[in-house]
């Protein structure tokens, strides 16, 4: 473990708490102008469930196991809140991104490009590819609604920073222990790349107190 990865994981936790706070505070999944994509949250739950199949078999540390349990539980809880508790505020007509395409694409790629053709390893690879594009329904929804509440932008900032810091962690680990993992490196770069234009707007507008509006 290194500081970059620890801060990255904490940013990931922060993003989940921001989302839960937003939903509890507004008691909905849709603020006046910004919405949370159910599809993205369902994809994240799928990512954690397919990635942590080694939860009991591969004990790395108490931290690792605790975080895995938290990510699985919190992502399922968020899906539950959106699907049942705040269902009335969830408008599927706005969540129009074809999630089946990214699920299908990630599954196909995981069957072709993986480190080992075992069920667990292919599921893990699928979760890595899926996580890279899981934010697309959310970003797509932002482009449709054209703007987002500030708290939603902080959610996206934390989420984008988490994987961005993982890139730094991988550079550090390559440098210090010759750690090489092409699959997570490339997927992580794609995932962080998807946030670039969001980061640009976030830094140039939101942090200056302006509203988050897409040009």
């Amino acid at each position: 473990m290194n500081l970059f990865r620890l801060v990255a994981d904490l940013m990931h936790l922060v993003s989940i708490f921001i989302l839960l706070l937003k939903m509890q505070k507004t008691r909905s999944v849709a603020g006046r102008c910004s919405r949370i994509s159910f599809k993205t949250q369902a994809l994240y739950a799928t990512v954690f469930l397919t990635r942590y199949t080694d939860l009991f078999a591969n004990f790395q540390s108490l931290y690792n196991t605790t975080m895995k349990v938290f990510f699985i539980a919190s992502s399922l809880y968020i899906v539950f809140l959106m699907k049942f508790k705040f269902k009335a505020t969830n408008d599927p007509r706005l969540d129009t991104f074809k999630a089946q395409y990214v699920v299908g694409g990630a599954a196909a790629l995981a069957l072709i490009v993986n480190y080992a053709f075992t069920v667990q390893e292919v599921l893990w690879t699928f979760s890595i590819y899926l996580e890279a594009v899981a934010i697309l329904p959310q970003l797509f929804m932002l482009t449709k609604t054209g703007e987002a509440e500030v708290i939603t932008t902080h959610y996206l900032f934390a989420l984008g920073t988490y994987r961005g810091l993982y890139l730094v962690n991988w550079i550090y680990r390559y440098w210090t222990e010759y750690y090489v993992d092409w699959i997570v490196w490339i997927a992580g770069a794609v995932q962080t790349g998807l946030y670039c234009d969001f980061f640009y707007i976030y830094f140039t507008k939101v942090l200056k107190g302006a509203k988050f509006e897409l040009p």
Partner: peptide, 10 residues
Amino acid sequence: YPGKKKHDEL
């Protein structure tokens, strides 16, 4: 997994 190492990251 690279080189049969288990996944040690989240």
